[in-house]
């Protein structure tokens, strides 16, 4: 039963990938290319690229993709459901605990300690995205268009508090226009 295999494989992936998409990749590779012969290494590489290019969580994107390759849309459904089962249960329990006990002084103090660390984590994610945006594969020099777009986007966000989604869309379209011209 390929559907049950998909669900079970992705439950394991969902359960053991702590820290998001890049932690899940080696697990997906192990399940899809080694445990089962669902994909070749080359196909796995393609899936990785597409999952990064398209919106949405990388783990969910690749689960959907692997599922489709293996067993069509029902397969994609099985892989996605498997992938989210562990976090649905665990995170709902954590949410309950958090809202139940966050008023306690000791819990408050632990959370207060976490906040600067979380900001630092987001800062490192930001730096790696800056690297991807300004130095795409092989590029040695910073692209002038990218820098201008970045500054424009940043000022727009800071000054007019525009919804980030619109800024992202506009930036994508402007880059397309400049590229075509």
């Amino acid at each position: 039963m390929v559907y049950l295999e998909l669900i079970w494989s992705f439950i394991q992936i969902g359960l053991f990938s702590i820290g998001g998409g890049y932690a899940a990749m080696p697990l997906i590779q192990h399940q899809a290319c080694e445990v089962h012969n669902w994909l070749s290494m080359e196909e796995f590489g393609d899936i990785l690229t597409i999952s990064e290019m398209t919106p949405g969580p990388i783990t969910i994107n690749s689960a959907t993709f692997v599922g489709i390759q293996v067993a069509g849309i029902p397969g994609a459904l099985c892989a996605t459901i498997g992938c989210i089962i562990p976090s649905s249960i665990i995170v709902t329990i954590l949410a309950f605990i958090y809202y139940r006990f966050k008023g306690l002084n000791s819990v408050q103090s632990v959370l207060k300690g976490l906040r600067p660390a979380v900001i630092a984590m987001i800062a490192t994610a930001w730096i790696s995205i800056m690297r991807m945006a300004f130095f795409p594969e092989g590029a040695k020099q910073i692209d002038l268009v990218s820098i201008t777009l970045f500054l424009l986007a940043f000022i727009t966000l800071k000054k007019w508090k525009i919804n980030p989604i619109f800024v992202m869309l506009a930036s994508g379209l402007i880059n397309l226009l400049i590229g075509v011209i």
Partner: peptide
């Protein structure tokens, strides 16, 4: 064309995160 749009959006994502990190 797809990659041009993606590159442009990624630059904006960098700006969105810059805004968040700086204000926090």
């Amino acid at each position: 064309y797809v990659s041009l749009i993606m590159e442009g959006m990624l630059v904006a994502v960098a700006a969105v995160l810059a805004d968040l990190v700086i204000s926090m």
